[in-house]
């Protein structure tokens, strides 16, 4: 059984992602660098809230060290919502703050002319892979990730908002799989176990 580690920034609803992962596999919550145990197979960076606060907490808690170590070892990292956005180089939400810069690209404000902002509720995600059927997931965000390499986008809403990003060992969800009922749990399960 795979062991899941969830990075707790202290600003997130850590309980719902923990409950969701526990229903799938062995799960621990990591509250600080010292608690980090290297037997973890899948690292989850969940997120809600402001980009600058998220980045500050990651550095204060030395989570950036854990994430980089995971990345170098090519172990699986899952970013959710803000947790995905923090993996990029920069964000419109916090102009002077550098992100973790693991995925080349930036976080942009969603254009109100193209879709109702904030995204709040359920949207159909169109997946590019034949293995994944188009399904509904729960979103709650006003910003979206725009990777330079568009091939990394494996699913989107209405061909506009990137929803699922994959770069080697990194998986990023703009939506909340832990809040997306069976569709979300199934997707999380596949990523954790494969």
């Amino acid at each position: 059984m795979k062991k899941v580690g969830i990075l707790n920034l202290g600003i997130n609803n850590i309980k719902s992602i923990t409950n969701a992962c526990k229903s799938i596999s062995e799960t621990v919550v990591i509250n600080s660098y010292n608690e980090f145990n290297r037997d973890i197979d899948v690292l989850i960076l969940p997120g809600n809230g402001h980009f600058s606060l998220g980045m500050k907490l990651i550095k204060d808690l030395k989570f950036d060290v854990i994430i980089k170590e995971f990345c170098e070892k090519k172990k699986k990292i899952v970013g959710i919502c803000l947790g995905l956005q923090l993996l990029m180089f920069r964000s419109d939400e916090a102009n002077n703050i550098k992100g973790l810069a693991l995925i080349d690209g930036e976080v942009k404000q969603i254009d109100r002319k193209k879709i109702k902002v904030p995204l709040l509720g359920w949207y159909t995600v169109n997946f590019k892979s034949k293995d994944l059927k188009d399904k509904e997931f729960f979103f709650n965000n006003s910003y979206m990730v725009c990777p330079v390499n568009k091939d990394l986008i494996k699913g989107n809403i209405g061909n506009y908002v990137p929803a699922y990003i994959v770069q080697e060992n990194i998986h990023g969800f703009q939506f909340h799989p832990e809040k997306s009922s069976h569709n979300g749990l199934e997707l999380l399960k596949n990523i954790i176990n494969n």
Binding site: N13, N19, F138, N140, K179, S180, S181, G184
Partner: peptide, 29 residues
Amino acid sequence: TEQVFIPVCVGGGIKSIEHIKALLECGAD
């Protein structure tokens, strides 16, 4: 929130940031 994997929103007499933090810890979205 232990068993319900959709957004759960909670209200009633919320007057402080402390109330909200307590609800967050209980899993409110």
